[in-house]
Amino acid sequence: METIVKNRIKQVKKGDQNAFAEIVDIYKDKIYQLCYRMLGNSHEAEDIAQEAFIRAYVNINSYDMDKKFSTWLYRIATNLTIDRIRKKKPDFYLDAEVTGTEGLTMYSQVAADVALPEDQVETMELQQMIQKEILKLPDKYRSVIVLKYIDELSLIEISEILDMPIGTVKTRIHRGREALRKQLRHL
């Protein structure tokens, strides 16, 4: 995988824009998922995930070919989501009622275009509840938890992505897990 990606990057560096589309295709789901779990909102997630790929493209010459491309890309995306969380207006949440509706939230808006059988609706409700709990984590815990358990990255990769010692990553994962335990144990 990394070999394919590195060949495509060489092409991109030579000015072949189309080679970049393949790179986007390979990583789009992972990066989008990271952004969605960090931000909890599909519009913002799409916006930030796109921004991450565009920054990667624009700055491709500063990518060190000796290192793993995905680590570099994850770093760009994680930094962007953390910046967004810090700038985020506190008055916009997915579970806030949509103006002019009764009991209609952005969750139902997002889900409205597909009719789902009952059991899938239940699964979605549970997932939305878990998502809300993830969003309650302070961003320094949220990022490590999402990278470890949703993107399934190793502690070493997480330490490289976040540019912090592995000991700090471990401590944050421990604290993040404890916070989640308190929030989720009654589910």
Binding site: Q17, N18, F20, A21, V24, D25, K28, D29, I31, Y32, Q33, Y36, R37, S42, E46, A49, Q50, F53, I54, L126, Q127, I130, Q131, I134, I145, Y149, I150, D151, E152, R177, L180, R181, Q183, L184, R185, L187
Partner: peptide, 24 residues
């Protein structure tokens, strides 16, 4: 362990269909 399993159970979402095109 239950918290971890719950968090992991949410881990299957995909980027929107026109995502790559939008970036390009």
């Amino acid at each position: 362990e239950k918290s971890i399993a719950l968090v992991q159970s949410t881990s299957h979402i995909e980027a929107p269909v026109d995502f790559t095109q939008a970036i390009m």
